[in-house]
Design a protein around this nucleic acid. Structure first.
Lengths: 115, 115
DNA sequence: CAGTATCCTTCACGATACTG
DNA sequence: CAGTATCGTGAAGGATACTG
């Protein structure tokens, strides 16, 4: 998504953070699964390439949404998790998610609440 | 924004509707101003070109977010307004807007949380 | 395992000119 | 007034191969 330099309201600023093609899915996965490793995320988000997943994660990290922790062990390990800011973003997205579920997705009982 | 054919959750579906570069600004303007004519919208959203404004409006119309009404008069007139669906979308976006205002915009009188 | 490194494609958006 | 009609560009995203 094209970074804007001036924002008119909070919404377009937020959309800018969250508007990448796979970003909300990353947020969703990290929220649902908790801390995730790279390969785990890749599996949770079928279709995304490693390159794009990496760049999205780095952008979310730069925006303070995601925490990235590297463990220098014999077997390399990196763990991703939501920052408090990321968790609050996810909460702010919930009404939008509910709207999408109710109006855009095929069917679904729309009384299914998620935390 | 790239249309996706399958959605994983309501949020990415909603982002798809609302993720065009100027779309939330259109929603914002229609919400704030009420019914608007084309030129009016153009003035409310500085920087957007006629071509892009047109195509965004048509997409929002196709998604049921915006109502477009043509008046065949001596002076051509077209009025845009939010549909009930569009109004509900705007409401669902409000928490995201609040989040963006609190965390992304320079400053209101708001105190800034952790850097 | 968790990425890089290249190369390539697409299309969203922009600039400008013209019109019913 | 409210748009089309073209043409052009850049960056986001994808495919594939390779690596510390």
């Amino acid at each position: 998504m094209t970074r804007r330099d001036t924002y008119v309201c909070g919404i377009d600023a937020a959309i800018d953070v969250v508007g990448g093609k796979w970003k909300v899915l990353i947020l969703w996965a990290l929220h649902a699964e908790g801390t995730c490793r790279f390969g785990q995320l890749k599996r949770e988000i079928p279709g995304v390439t490693e390159k794009v997943l990496t760049s999205h994660l780095r952008e979310l990290e730069a925006d303070g949404i995601v925490r990235r922790e590297v463990y220098e062990e014999r077997v390399p390990r990196v763990e991703y998790s939501l920052t408090p800011l990321g968790a609050s973003l996810n909460e702010a997205l919930e009404p939008l998610g509910a709207w999408g579920r109710a109006h855009l997705l095929p069917q679904d009982h729309h009384d299914r609440r998620s935390a």
